[in-house]
């Protein structure tokens, strides 16, 4: 995606041109500036389905441009855009319900199968999580959402968000257990020694 230079128009300026003139060039500039992050977010939270992630990106941009007049610029444009994307993602995910002990046992049994252990990196481990676990883990540990924000975004209680995160982290650690029992990013060769 395009990098922003000092002489580039700001997001607000581009948005104004879109609103005032339906300026396609302004939209393309805004699209290229933010779509990489939006697509990665959708791709990760949906578990790696490129087709679904692209659909989310398209729906998000359509809703964003249609609702541009209502955006008050109290947050960054990207945060607002990701929020719209999250609303679209939520409709694609299966209903998130409170984690149960049997969920974790079933998940762990599946994830630590011999043909998987030790052969996946963190990205792949996150991708293998069930929808509800993965959504909370990505929102909390990757995107930096609080449990209150997650509960509002996904329509669950903060307690459910906490329990989902707890089980998700345990599942990821178990999945990566053969590599030292801690979460690490295999792609960068970084490993936490403990």
């Amino acid at each position: 995606m395009d990098e922003i230079r000092n002489d580039d128009p700001t997001d607000a300026e581009l948005a104004q041109r879109i609103l005032r003139e339906g300026d396609e060039a302004a939209f393309r500039a805004l699209y290229r500036r933010h779509t990489g992050a939006l697509y990665q977010f959708a791709l990760r939270i949906l578990g790696g389905s490129e087709m679904d992630a692209e659909d989310i990106v398209q729906e998000t941009w359509i809703r964003a441009v249609a609702g541009l007049t209502r955006f008050r610029w109290e947050s960054s444009f990207r945060t607002w855009l990701i929020g719209i994307g999250l609303n679209r993602v939520r409709k694609s995910l299966r209903r998130v319900r409170p984690a149960q002990q049997e969920d974790l046992e079933r998940l762990e049994a599946e994830l630590v199968a011999p043909d998987r252990a030790g052969r996946i990196d963190l990205e792949q481990a996150v991708r293998l999580l069930p929808d509800g676990y993965r959504a909370v883990l990505v929102l909390h540990d990757v995107e930096g959402f609080t449990h209150d924000e997650i509960s509002r975004s996904l329509g669950i209680t903060p307690g459910t968000s906490r329990s989902q995160l707890h089980f998700a982290r345990r599942a990821v650690r178990r999945l990566l257990g053969a590599q030292g029992g801690q979460i690490h990013d295999a792609r960068h060769g970084h490993r936490a020694d403990s």
Binding site: Y39, E50, L122, V142, Q182, A192
Partner: peptide
């Protein structure tokens, strides 16, 4: 999360290119 684990999450790519 340990600091190392947190760093591992932060190292995950923030952008990807769609088609």
């Amino acid at each position: 999360l340990t600091p190392e684990e947190r760093e591992a999450f932060l190292r995950l790519p923030r952008e990807a290119a769609p088609s």
